[in-house]
Amino acid sequence: MDSVFSHTIAAILTIGIISFLYKDNPLYKFCESLFIGVSAGYWFVQQYYANLLPKLFDNLGITKLVGAENAPEGALQALFLEGRLDDNLLYLIAGVLGVMMLLRLSPKIGWIARWPLAFTVGSSAGLYFITYFQSNAMSQLEHTILPLNSFNNLVLIVGTVTGIIYFYFSKEHKGVFGGAAKVGIYFLMITFGASFGYTVMSRMSLLIGRIDFLFGTWLGLVK
């Protein structure tokens, strides 16, 4: 595409989005609608080529079956040509679950769409259980077990323990316990403030990037 033309399109879209800060307007509405359409299309195509094709069709050998050149042999070729049960045949389960998902459209057997959902939810529950337990709970605790021989260690331990007390559900936050929870809140607030302050600068640089595009790349005013 011609670069002046393409940059002008990009610039109009950039201005359209920024204009929302003033108020909702037809140009923003146009940009928003275009963004929704184009991005939904983009992700559909990406998902097809990045997930469905390699993970299901290639593994099963469907790509080869429909006559695509250079396509790898899959589980179906192994089964029918070599009479061997390939591990990849298990991807058939994923394919079946995927089709079940689509059955949701049928009023009569739409309930079967709950099976792939139950599979998804069950597997995320299992996976997250372990990953959070290992990386969030165990390793954080291990690193907090420190000798109380420095001011920093003391603050770190007091902060972590009182922070955990803040989350305690089954005891009223009153008296000493309530006091500890209160200290915990202050630690949480410092944490939030720290990430807030830390992020502000990086967000500013994003804006500078777009302004640089408008005045530099597009209009050529800034070199």
Partner: peptide, 28 residues
């Protein structure tokens, strides 16, 4: 189940406090 979570918190806090005290006694 929320009460069960709180037991987890007691385990976590005890581990930190007991571990830290042991580390301190060892350091001293």
């Amino acid at each position: 189940s929320l009460k069960g979570q709180d037991v987890g918190k007691i385990i976590a806090m005890s581990a930190i406090v007991i571990g830290a005290l042991l580390e301190t006694f060892f350091a001293i």
